Amino acid sequence: MNATVTRPSASRTPLVALACVREDLDGVAHAAVRQVYVSALEDVAGCAVVLVQGPASWLPSVLDRFDGVVLGGHESNVAPERYGAPPAPGPRAPERDELALSLAPLAIEAGLPLLGICRGLQELNVAYGGTLRDIGALPIGAAHREDLSLPRDGQYLPLHDIAVTPGGRLREITGQDTVRVNSLHQQAIDRLATGLTVEAVAADGVVEAVSVTDASAFALAVQWHPEWYAASDPVSKPLFTAFGAAAAAHARGRG
């Protein structure tokens, strides 16, 4: 007589693609991303992380292996040529531009949860046809710049309040109408892309969060840096938890 063995079903850890950037360190090329992004995704969102670097023509053929996509921040800015503006000086990462601007729509179309952070919000807006503006030299830029006299942990402390859109996805996640964040950036949304919905705005008018209006899964991008205090900040933790839950749901469906 043959015995039937029933094996316990193991939960599948969601696998997310985290966009990184090529950086030359000591004359050697590295695929680089700050560890705080990896830690936030692993420890708070409960995800396994794979770094992806552009240009990546192979991405469409492996996208179905992932349960989420994260476009994090970086010191470089999206090239103005990408949204029809004249060229301008500034730190650039052309491979990252190419990766993010193609990856974001592919991920949304595939139903993958997507989280954009700082540069990731700007990339999402450009990917959907929006434009950016440089706020670095404007008076409003002061609220969006780090105090370089402080230690790094102090530079990333919440600095200013933003108004959360009633009835929006971010309002659902945070449960608050106003939250305090640490926006540190030079570029900001100028013309909002068709297909995106504003989720939060700063008092100076800077768009602080957007969602993809008709996305079938979690698709949210924020202008600030929730990764820095992801395990303790009352805004950052639920954001990563919500993304992790969406990625886990995708993993179960894929399993």
Rank of each mutant, 00 (worst) to 15 (best):
D64M: 08
R65C: 00
R65D: 00
R65V: 01
R65L: 02
R65G: 00
R65S: 03
R65K: 01
R65F: 01
R65Q: 04
F66A: 01
F66C: 07
D67F: 15
G68M: 11
V69Y: 14
V69P: 13
V69W: 11
V70Y: 10
L71Q: 07
G72N: 13
G72V: 13
G72Y: 09
G72C: 13
G72K: 12
G73S: 09
H74E: 06
H74V: 14
E75S: 13
E75A: 13
E75D: 13
S76N: 09
N77S: 14
A79M: 04
A79N: 10
A79D: 15
A79T: 01
P80T: 04
P80R: 10
P80N: 06
E81I: 03
E81D: 08
E81L: 07
R82G: 00
R82F: 00
Y83C: 11
Y83S: 13
Y83F: 13
Y83T: 12
Y83R: 07
G84A: 02
G84R: 03
G84S: 02
A85P: 05
A85V: 07
P86S: 10
P86N: 09
P86H: 09
P87G: 12
A88M: 08
A88N: 01
A88H: 04
A88L: 05
P89K: 15
P89L: 06
P89N: 15
P89W: 06
P91L: 12
P91Y: 09
P91W: 05
P91T: 12
R92E: 03
R92Q: 08
R92K: 08
R92A: 15
R92T: 04
R92N: 01
A93S: 12
A93V: 00
P94Y: 04
P94T: 06
E95G: 08
E95T: 07
E95Q: 08
E95S: 11
E95Y: 14
R96G: 04
R96L: 07
R96T: 04
R96H: 08
R96Q: 04
D97K: 08
E98Y: 01
E98P: 02
L99C: 05
A100S: 12
L101W: 00
L101Q: 11
L101A: 11
S102A: 14
S102K: 15
L103W: 05
L103P: 01
L103S: 03
L103C: 08
L103R: 13
A104P: 05
A104G: 14
A104S: 11
P105G: 15
P105C: 10
L106Q: 12
L106H: 06
L106W: 00
L106T: 02
L106K: 06
A107E: 03
A107D: 04
A107W: 01
I108H: 09
I108N: 03
I108K: 02
I108T: 06
